[in-house]
Amino acid sequence: ILDSIAQGRHPAEAVLKAWGQQNRYAGSKDRRAIADRVYLVLRARGRLSWIMGGREDGRALVIGSLSALDGLPLDQIEALHSGDGYGPRPLSKQERFRIMAGAGDLPGWVAAGLPEFVVEDFKATFGDSWTEEARALMQPRAPIDLRVNTARVFVEAVAAELAEAGLSPTRAPWSPVGLRLPAEPPPNVQALDAFKDGRIEIQDEGSQVVCALASAAPGMTVVDYCAGGGGKTLGLAGAMQGQGRLVASDVVQKRIDNIRPRLVRAGVEAELRVVGPNGGGMEDLNDAADLVFVDAPCSGSGTWRRRPEDAWRLTAEEVARLHALQVRILGQAARLVRPGGRLAYVTC
């Protein structure tokens, strides 16, 4: 599973789901244990690779995790790698040596859990507290944030409903329409009636807050220029209260198609458009929008707690490519803003 994640671009969650579907013999507890191990390894990937002499294959990372994260002594790790039955093959001499040698003195980027090339930016941004910021970004498991569809229900009513279902919701610190569930045990939100009926959506509080700050309002013409999966489209629609014109666009047809059922479930409407790579297909909205909301393609560093695999896929070259793309998108989106209108630019 770890090798598949490293070699591809799919989210770890999707790779785990596909593995479970292809290996039905694994029960729910087994799948849960495997998922926990995968995410544990991904969050500590830099440290584990360092301990294992620079190896980045799944086997090495798991062996390193048994020693560094679980604190198992060498003899117990060897017992788990007996090669008997379906067990993994015995440890090599090099693997034994790496476990016995331990971590040693870790470079700052390894200890912080960051890709090496981003460290200087972190130091420049956060100063002496950069390692604490890095650990907070990478290591804790992210809570589950929910956005309440206040067109259908009050936040307090949803909180009570979730509590009756055995969950432990709290109010989100900043979003007035947000609720937060602890990451452990992981809740199956999509199985809840409140989700199926469109009364809640899974959405990080940061996304909820930027929708509020964009200040969409009833009667406006609003464009969600890089709509993606449509989460912020729903947030903007809620602020507009069914009055005005909301246009959601993206360059990928599949993303647009995925928004449709979410709109229906939430009971809101939006025009959906596929645009060309140079912004074609939006000319009728030039100088017409009160608000253009641009959630630009980016490094995704703000989501690394939830998707730690993305930290290790990012390269300096990819950051440069994304910067050039963002500049182009910003110029395209700016053409749609009416004089005196607002252009809201967001990255995570």
Rank of each mutant, 00 (worst) to 15 (best):
P186I: 11
L167H: 11
V223C: 08
V210Q: 02
T131A: 14
G198K: 00
R199N: 09
A142I: 11
G166R: 05
T221K: 01
F154P: 01
T125N: 12
A227N: 03
M220K: 05
Q190M: 13
D197M: 13
G219Y: 04
D193N: 13
S207H: 03
P173D: 07
R147L: 08
A134K: 00
V148C: 04
I200M: 05
F122I: 00
S215V: 01
V223T: 01
G219H: 03
T170P: 02
A183H: 13
P169R: 03
P140F: 13
P186A: 12
D204H: 02
R147C: 06
N149C: 12
E156M: 08
L146E: 08
M138H: 10
S207F: 03
E201L: 10
R141G: 06
S168T: 13
P182S: 05
Y225P: 09
P218F: 06
G228V: 08
T221P: 00
E201N: 10
A214N: 01
M220W: 00
V118E: 04
T170E: 15
V158H: 00
G166A: 08
A142R: 12
T170V: 15
A172I: 00
D204M: 00
N149H: 12
E205F: 01
D121S: 15
R180M: 08
F154E: 13
A172M: 01
V223A: 04
R135E: 14
E205N: 05
F195P: 04
R180P: 03
P218L: 10
I202W: 04
A165W: 03
A172V: 02
E205V: 02
M138I: 12
A214S: 07
Q190Y: 09
P182I: 04
F154D: 13
T170Q: 15
A142V: 11
E132N: 11
